[in-house]
Amino acid sequence: MSIVVDIVLFTLLGATGFALLKIRNLFAVVMLAGIYSLLSAGLFTVMDAVDVAFTEAAVGAGISTVLFLGALALAGHHENRPGHTPLLPLVVVVVTGGVLVYGTMDMPGFGHPGNPVHHHVADHYLEESYDEIGIPNVVTSVLASYRGYDTMGETTVVFAAAVGVMLLLSGARRARSRASPGEGRDTGGGAGKGDAG
């Protein structure tokens, strides 16, 4: 049963990926990206990662769509036709994909309980965490306690990203009215659009 759901979700993900590639209206692209996130959240649920699915649904389909729309409102929503031939990127992608598929040949099969990844720290977490930490959700106890330093680092990264966005966006919009290099650039592209500043 789960394999059927798996295949349906993968097919839909592939179709969404192709649509993302082809569509040049960026509003539609952002909506499809939200759908892609929601589908992948479904896939995470099928693969038992309920916490991850929850996060992906909240982040990917929720907040990230809103942020993309905010950025589109500022940066315009039409994409130009790609100028150069797609041959070189296609070759790069096919070669990279081929190498990765070659790499999977040696990977242990999907879902086997004997795979090495399940037998180093994972055993310890599953067997001992209730005695050591005392809460049933193993993901939470690994996240906050066993790998607390890791999570602290991630929190700091999120904070640092916010500082970056603040530095980039909280100043006044003076770039358009600035003298010298800014003026030269204005004449090049999309002149007349920038009535701000």
Binding site: L67, G70, T140, S141, S145, M152, V165
Partner: peptide, 24 residues
């Protein structure tokens, strides 16, 4: 451990909430 996890998760909650709303 229980108290520690609750406090630490509270820190994560406050940061993520603050960051997401600020960026928005």
């Amino acid at each position: 451990q229980h108290y520690g996890i609750l406090l630490v998760e509270l820190g994560v909650l406050v940061t993520v909430f603050g960051v997401m709303v600020t960026v928005f």
